[in-house]
Design a protein around this nucleic acid. Structure first.
Length: 607
DNA sequence: GTAGGGTTAG
């Protein structure tokens, strides 16, 4: 015992120790040897300090040396391990505690349940639930009840249990409500979450800003600005407008519901802003208007806010969307200067950016230099290869990924199938389509079938593509027929093309492009009666084909233009570059597809 | 001396 105290009080330990631990030791000095906490209490205090500083091993050895460990000390260890994401060590501590005959209290039970929740370990959670009933903590501690709801709401297939425990809570507090709403929302049942949110008002439950943020995030996840606006109004009515996380989630909701002007207005009216506010707007505009997203980024820096990894991930994605290589490279330099270049997510965004800017070699350079990769890194690299027609490299990368132990998901299969499709590796692609279910146990969905239709269609195997559509376990949607129609157009298959076009129009799709393609087919087969009636229909419905837009980056400025654009034509330098590009395309053997494209443009001019 | 819920990435 004396040796233990001497170790604790040794002045040589003071200097390298974290500040909070030093403070605890000073407290011992002040109180020792007649500390009111007792030596066990002071040591527990120290253990907590070590965990707070992330010094796990120090906390562990201190606990090992404790001559007497009470329930509070054990619980501090369990909580400490849980806070450092060492959930299995927390569970082991709990087992040792029970083995030592120490009776857990409500603090212990709620901490252990949190660990079960993090591990999504339902069976362990159920054991603890049983124990909680046995020792009488369920129903007597709101912390235990809420932790049970949280554990069941997070584990798979146990939402009913979460609901049962929740309904049994006599005095539900704000945490109980928020936990249940979060449970539904995080398992992608936004309507379920919003229903509980509504129930909370009806039962006059305790309101808190937390429940408002999660309800808003539920509205965002279903893209309902209508519901989002209602919750926004409730936020104002209940005086939560001054809560920054709530306002940030409303901003995110407007962005994700594609309400750009509402988002901009709210942002302008917000009196308080933090990095998350800026990042939310920048990330939101990355998909809504990438150029604007870059402008907001400049504004953020000008106003003295420090961009972080999230910020750079969004602006790099914006550069990818705009295909502005020079801008992306400058930002990459800034990322390295600021030391964010070892971020996994950011490296993934850079792989995508370089590939979309036509520089797949630099994508690979980033990919190969990454110390840590995940499924997204491999997928981004495969998408990059696929888009550049390097199907073989994409397939090799897929095999390498599987060898490295990463389990493929649906999206990586889409990347491989698309890469095979663009490189004409039809049989290779079909092999992966088969392996997907038979070997990798990934269920193909409608989008995967769309990829396979595209794979067959691009190669001109339109009949096989049609057969696949007819036999797939889903009702074909518009995009699948559009893919087949595109293939028929490319391979000049008017009969199948007519069928696909009629299917698209059957789906009440008012896509003018489909009308144009169908009328082209009628014209080509000399069916002038149908051609004329379709053109009449197009004129009456005022359908206009969305204009195809191209862009060119010149001297750090992006110019966007459409066919016959006078603005671009008047800029001599751009015109010269375009002429150069066309000459280069002809030199490498590209033949302009004039017959159909001119027809489309003629029609556009007329409508 | 030990316990809880929310907002930003293929």
């Amino acid at each position: 015992m004396m040796a233990f105290c001497r170790k604790l009080l040794s002045p040589t330990d003071f200097l390298p120790l974290p500040l909070s631990v030093q403070n605890s030791l000073r407290c011992i000095e002040l109180n020792s040897p007649f500390s009111p906490k007792g030596i066990t209490g002071i040591t527990t205090d120290l253990i907590k300090s070590y965990f707070d500083e992330g010094s796990i091993e120090e906390a562990h050895s201190l606990f090992d040396e404790m001559p007497h460990r009470d329930v509070i000390a054990w619980t501090a260890m369990i909580t400490g391990y849980t806070s450092c994401d060492h959930h299995n060590r927390a569970w082991n501590m709990f087992s040792y505690m029970l083995r030592d005959g120490v009776k857990p209290n409500a603090f212990t039970v709620s901490s252990v349940l949190k660990g079960c929740k993090e591990l999504k370990a339902l069976s362990r959670g159920k054991l603890v639930h049983g124990l909680a009933i046995k020792i009488g903590t369920q129903g007597s501690s709101i912390y235990v009840d809420n932790a049970l709801v949280n554990m069941y709401a997070t584990c798979c297939d146990s939402m009913d249990n979460a609901r049962l425990v929740f309904e049994d809570i006599v005095t539900k507090n704000a945490v109980s409500w928020t936990t249940l709403i979060t449970g539904y929302t995080h398992r992608r049942d936004a309507y379920g979450g919003l229903q509980v949110f509504r129930q909370m008002f009806m039962e006059e439950g305790e309101l808190s800003p937390f429940s408002f943020s999660i309800a808003i995030s539920a509205c965002a996840s279903i893209g309902s600005s209508n519901l989002g606006k209602q919750v926004h109004a409730a936020v104002i009515n209940h005086g939560f407008e001054s809560n920054l996380p709530v306002m940030n989630s409303i901003l995110d909701m407007y962005c994700r519901c594609r309400c750009a002007s509402e988002a901009k207005q709210l942002f302008g009216e917000m009196t308080q802003k933090d990095t998350i506010t800026w990042n939310t707007l920048i990330a939101g505009f990355e998909t809504l208007d990438s150029k604007e997203s870059l402008c907001i980024f400049l504004q953020m820096v000008a106003e003295g806010f420090s961009p972080n990894g999230f910020t750079f991930t969004s602006v790099i994605a914006a550069c990818a969307n705009l295909a502005v290589l020079y801008c992306g490279q400058q930002l990459h330099g800034e990322i390295i200067r600021r030391g964010f270049d070892n971020s996994l997510e950011l490296s993934n965004a850079l792989i995508d950016m370089y590939a979309k800017c036509g520089n797949v070699a630099d994508s690979h350079k980033i990919f190969s230099q990454m110390s840590l990769t995940n499924l997204v890194s491999w997928t981004s690299m495969m998408i990059g290869y696929g888009a550049h027609g390097h199907g073989k490299e994409a397939v090799e990368l897929f095999n390498e990924m599987v060898r490295s132990g990463i389990k493929p998901d649906k999206i990586v299969f889409m990347a491989v199938l698309s890469a095979c499709s663009h490189a004409g590796l039809v049989d290779e692609g079909l092999r992966y389509f088969r392996l997907m279910t038979s070997y990798y146990n990934v269920a193909p969905d409608r989008e995967i079938y769309g990829c396979v239709v595209d794979l067959l269609g691009r190669a001109g195997r339109v009949n096989e593509a049609y057969e696949l559509i007819e036999n797939m376990p889903f009702k074909p949607d518009e995009s699948i027929w559009v893919a087949l129609l595109g293939a028929c157009r490319k391979h000049k298959q008017p009969t199948m093309g007519k069928l696909a076009a009629l299917k698209v129009l059957d789906m009440k799709s008012n896509k003018a492009g489909t009308y144009v393609l169908l009328s082209n087919i009628y014209a080509a087969e000399g069916n002038w009666a149908d051609f004329a009636s379709l053109r009449k229909l197009m004129k009456s419905s005022k359908n206009k084909k969305e204009v195809g837009r191209s862009w060119i980056e010149l001297k750090n400025q992006v110019y966007s233009f459409v066919v016959g654009d006078r603005y671009v034509s008047s800029n001599e330098e751009i015109y010269e570059v375009l002429k150069l590009l066309i000459r280069h395309m002809k030199d490498v053997g590209y033949v302009l597809d004039l017959d159909l494209d001119c027809f489309v443009h003629d029609l556009e001019d007329e409508t």
